[in-house]
Nucleic acid binder design. Structure first.
Lengths: 250, 250
DNA sequence: CGGTCAATTGAATAGAGTCAAGCGTAGTGG
DNA sequence: CCACTACGCTTGACTCTATTCAATTGACCG
């Protein structure tokens, strides 16, 4: 037990779990520690494992320590839509706090390490620690803004533009958390996952990827995504580079 | 000036502006008053007016007192996607707090009354009043969950299912704020607006509406939407009735 | 060396978009 | 009271993006 608590704390203080919280401004070590004390021991998940099912009645959050996860909504016909991708440092399941039963299932897209954060103490912590609450509020708003952008693309842009936008945004997020080159990073998503994200069939995803390869825009090879021409991808997607607010009020 | 402040306060204490805040639990009159004191004088907007443009550099929020508004993202080709609809009591523009420039324009879908809430004092208020912060946090999560549902429908469901879902959700929201019959309520949206919401052309929206009329599912007439068969709409959309959390921690 | 999962390609089909024209109705002004 | 206008609704015909179904190839693993 001691062991896992130490491991957990180490992850929260040194690992990428911290970085995400600091996106909108410094967070006191005290705030980070109290969040760490809420978290349960790390659990391992394999690709495809369900981290939290949409049939789980009791609400709980997860802190993603390692690997990629996604929130998936399953339709009646069995197809699924991934509504967001989460990278290490993200807190999973916050939207579910607002509803009595989850609409989405949280799945591991990769080998994942995550720990549980129980909902009640989490909310109590927010009310205890205004600055941490403000930071998490802003992080939630950012994810909502991101969902709005995807919604707009889904409704108005053809599939290849949506894929271009996905690549651009993944590039931005990945470059924030690893010190590897921004233009080449691990890509655990299969073509079917990408299809579930951008709302197309696997077959069509494949054709777009082929097209991107031919146009020297981007290539996926050996579970790595290489961005060959970010500017042209931005132009194709019709989006701008993401600029986070630098709030004066924090 | 006295006059408008009184009008503003009245709206915040009696009107539907209060109701939305109380969705997840009681909010102290004190909390409501301090939010009221932040708000500027009410301003009138006509249908089509821009409440906050995506070119406005300075971030500010709005409190919607009357009428319907929407957040719209405009694409390069001039088409637009409405990412959310807001009803009286909603706070507009929160996601924009997280980015340095807005991605969306907030437009009036109807005759609208709204007042400005400056961003900095708003965030400071959140850090001052934990309970108000928690409530607004949950409201944001709910809107994000709602966006996720729409995203899933947009990616995986045909246009008629998306329209069915829109009608069902609008019905739920409208019945919360007026005491008129749940199955018949004002509908300021034009067919082009509905198309912008569900991501189809006006022409196709028209055909779906005709289909709904023939199947006795729902009818729009004289700026009113009448829901004829909510259960079949739910089934068609493949969604369940919305159940808000009843948090034990508030 | 089969077994499983992922990527790839072709052919037929359907959902939705675009273009273009016609219709209804409310409001305005003579 | 009628004519004119503006806006929104309705419908048809054609096109195209993306889907579905099906089959094949390739890669990795025990």
């Amino acid at each position: 037990m001691e062991n896992s608590i130490e491991a957990r704390d180490a992850a929260l203080y040194e690992g990428p779990a911290t970085a995400r919280l600091e996106n909108f401004g410094a967070v006191s070590p005290d705030d980070k520690r109290s969040l760490a004390e809420l978290a349960g021991p790390p659990t391992e998940f394999k690709r495809g494992d369900i981290i939290r099912s949409d049939r789980d009645a009791s609400t709980c959050l997860h802190l993603l320590l390692d690997g990629w996860a996604a929130s998936a909504i399953t339709m009646e016909d069995g197809s699924r839509q991934l509504t967001s991708v989460s990278l290490p440092g993200d807190i999973l399941g916050m939207p579910t706090l607002a509803v009595s039963y989850p609409l989405d299932t949280i799945v591991a897209l990769d080998s994942v390490r995550a720990c549980v954060i129980p909902a009640k103490p989490f909310m109590e912590l927010l009310m205890d620690r205004p600055r941490l609450a403000a930071v998490l509020f802003l992080i939630s708003q950012e994810e909502r803004m991101f969902a709005m952008e995807r919604l707009a693309l889904m409704g108005r842009a053809p599939a290849r533009d949506r894929l271009a936008a996905l690549f651009v945004r993944l590039r931005e997020r990945c470059s924030q958390l690893s010190n590897v080159s921004a233009d080449r990073f691990p890509m655990p998503l299969r073509q079917s996952d990408i299809g579930d994200l951008i709302g197309t069939s696997t077959v069509h995803t494949n054709r777009i990827l082929k097209n991107f390869r031919e146009l020297n825009l981007a290539v996926i090879k050996k579970r790595e995504l290489e961005i060959l021409d970010n500017d042209r991808l931005l132009a194709r997607a019709g989006v701008s580079a993401w600029h986070r607010a630098e709030p004066s009020w924090l």
